[in-house]
Write a protein that binds this DNA or RNA. Structure first.
Lengths: 217, 217
DNA sequence: AGAAAATCTTGACACTCGTCCAAAATCGTT
DNA sequence: AACGATTTTGGACGAGTGTCAAGATTTTCT
């Protein structure tokens, strides 16, 4: 039944809405459990049964809330983005000097490298899957774009504070930060204790580099 | 039977050697077929039967030449490296000026982006798998290191020609180039016709950036 | 040519997978 | 309490997986 447009206080309307809410609430719950399992095992080794079990449900329930596996994974990727941008939104919105901004941003990246390592791992896994499975590409590209905007805000603010305009476009800047983060993640997950610290210094250096305010080695 | 150390002309020695050669030759052949299939389907969707079929053998033969699936994949990754460094070794060893070097290197990267897209796709897939499967990490890290050395040669040569030392370490430089290449690959495989051209300009710009010889935007 | 060693095929095994569905359980309303 | 709708269960299905071993085939050596 589609939602009535006549009266806002319509009873059937309230019921339908409540059902929709419950439905999508459980969808989110299951997707979060799926994200948890995916981040632990990776895309290639995660089964629907494993996800349902970790969520405390039987395996059949997933097809009640999701059309098929691709539908579930796609929803998970979108959910990941929500978590992701929220995490970065808390990071560095105000900083007095360029140096302080670089410092705080670098610390934040190093922190999420350690704390959310398995989630980032999942992101890179899914982005790789998008190279093969066309179904994922739209969502992956959208998340990439939102991360790029995040980098763009940081870089342009830094450039403003430093009084020196960026030497490259935001796409390139994002790709660069993404590259060093990915490298740091592999080191972190391999147990390299210096991974976070090295990322911190690399990020700070990089901000100087992309604004052309760095010193030669 | 282990190889005799007494006489170089030993007959049993010759036989053993020939057998070893044939054995490892077929191993390589099967691994190449596996690489072909892997690059098309990706790690998650490639089965041993599929590989064997594409190689023109029955599925049982793989366990004659490889201990198990991990053994095969690991061997494939190593093989990929051999192909990879060979490809890059042909690239830009001599260039008169910094500008020319940047130009040639950028063209070469853009070319391999188009021609060997599916192979690069496999590389990023396997590197992501290494984040989950510990068995792959050693090989992946080794390949990463060899690619880093390649970047290091290019950057340091460029810096020499430009008369301006690099503004960051080789690890960061490699991560940056890797990042933009990965981004370009996603665009290329998504059918973006401007992917290669944009990569070419980005690579050339980047060489200037890492040596601090670039102009502000 | 015949024996021995290698290579390869074939079928089977014990799983796991995604998907579907009928029945059971739970919930909300009357 | 009782009914209808929603939600959940758990089994079944067919397809596909990696692995293994026994037998057929081919190659190699004497």
């Amino acid at each position: 039944m589609t939602r009535s447009a006549t009266t806002t206080g319509d009873r059937a309307d309230r019921i339908a809405r409540r059902q929709v809410d419950k439905f999508s609430e459980r969808r989110r719950e299951l997707a979060d459990a799926a994200l948890q399992t995916l981040s632990e095992l990776g895309y290639a080794r995660t089964s629907l049964r494993e996800i349902a079990q970790n969520a405390g449900f039987s395996h059949g329930v997933l097809h009640y809330y999701f059309h098929d596996k691709v539908d579930l994974i796609t929803y998970c990727v979108r959910r990941y983005k929500a978590v992701c941008v929220q995490r970065y939104d808390d990071v560095v919105t105000t900083a007095a000097t360029a140096t302080r901004l670089a410092e705080q941003f670098a610390v934040a990246m190093a922190a999420t490298l350690v704390e959310d390592a398995v989630m980032h791992r999942l992101w890179y896994d899914l982005r790789s899957q998008a190279l093969f499975e066309q179904s994922f590409r739209a969502d992956v590209t959208e998340i990439d774009a939102s991360l790029e905007r995040m980098i763009e805000r940081v870089v342009s603010r830094y450039a403003e504070l430093a009084g020196s305009p960026p030497v490259c476009g935001t796409a390139v800047a994002y790709a660069m930060f993404d590259g060093i983060f990915q490298q740091a993640l592999l080191r972190q997950l391999s147990g390299d204790p210096a991974a976070a610290a090295d990322l911190r210094t690399a990020v700070a250096e990089m901000l100087a580099i992309v604004t052309g305010t760095s010193k030669s080695l």
